[in-house]
Simulated assay, not measured.
Amino acid sequence: MMFSCDTPLFSCRIAPLGGVRPLPSRYSATGVPKRQLEFLTGRALAEQCLTAQGASETYVARGDNRAPIWPDGFCGSISHSDQLCAAIAGRAENVPGIGVDLAEEKSVEAALSDVVCHPDDDPQLTLTELFCAKEAFYKLWHPVTDVFLEFRDVVLRIDDGHITAEVMKAHRPSDKLSGTTGRIWRVAGHHLSAFSAGPHAIEALNTLGHMLKIEQGA
């Protein structure tokens, strides 16, 4: 395990692909061996997070769109790169929504700039940071709204380390998304971004950032 953090609001795990043993046997993983390893490592970390949060059921099903289906009363998110996997989960009554994404530094090619970037995106964020943070936001957004977004449907701005997301596409507002905020950090050659919603969102992300700094000796 590379990183483990348990708080009253959420639990987070980060590990190398295949770095969790034993891998859960109750899931049906498909695809090439590497794809199976990504899927099973993510589920193993997600189950650890749910257990730490007191869930009696830790099975994370897979929806028709391949997105995780979390046990009743809980929300969470899973992400992986070619090297690492991350999972985060919490009780929905404390954190009504949360999304996480990992991206290797400078892994997004400049040719994708027109796909990822909106003209009003904050220039303080690099292309890969924008990609990573928008992915994290979408993982928070979609389970709540069931509304599909393109990268350019979201404008990101950063102030004092906190990222705000403005959705440019017409949508029906949701109280569950009130207080949405995001952060982004560097972890082992990667960008790690997380978005959370609700009255405890800032506290949750500040705590995660603090624990990451401690883990990395910063």
Rank of each mutant, 00 (worst) to 15 (best):
G18Y: 04
G99Y: 06
D175S: 10
G198S: 01
D146A: 09
S178Q: 14
L192D: 13
S193L: 03
N65F: 11
Q124M: 02
D146F: 08
R186N: 14
Q36S: 13
R13V: 11
I14C: 04
Y59D: 01
D64M: 14
R26V: 07
R43K: 15
V60F: 08
G42D: 11
S79R: 13
I202E: 15
M1W: 09
V95W: 07
E93S: 04
Q36C: 14
Q216M: 12
L127P: 02
H190F: 01
E57C: 01
I184S: 05
H190I: 05
L177Q: 04
L177T: 07
I184D: 05
V115M: 15
D160S: 12
S107P: 03
M1Y: 15
S193D: 00
D153P: 00
T164H: 14
A165F: 01
R183Q: 09
H190V: 13
L127E: 13
V20Q: 04
S77H: 07
A197L: 03
R157V: 08
D6L: 05
E93Q: 14
A89H: 03
N65R: 12
A204C: 11
Y27L: 05
A52D: 15
W141K: 05
D121F: 00
R157L: 02
A103I: 06
D121T: 05
T51K: 15
T7C: 00
D175L: 10
R172W: 07
I69A: 12
S178R: 14
E104H: 02
S178L: 10
E104K: 11
R26F: 02
D114F: 00
H190G: 03
T207V: 08
V154Y: 00
R152K: 03
F148K: 07
L23V: 03
I88A: 04
H171M: 06
L50G: 02
G54S: 09
D101Q: 00
R62E: 14
K34Q: 11
H171A: 10
E105I: 11
L192W: 07
E93R: 12
L125H: 05
L40N: 13
H200T: 10
M211N: 05
D120E: 14
S79M: 05
N206M: 10
G42I: 09
E215H: 10
L149S: 09
L102P: 00
E129W: 00
D101I: 06
A55R: 09
S193N: 06
S81F: 04
T41G: 09
G161F: 03
A188E: 15
I163G: 08
S193H: 02
I98G: 00
M168C: 10
C117M: 08
S4L: 10
D6Q: 04
T30Q: 15
F10Q: 13
S81Y: 04
P143W: 03
P71I: 05
E166G: 09
R21Q: 15
P16I: 02
D159G: 04
V32T: 13
I158G: 01
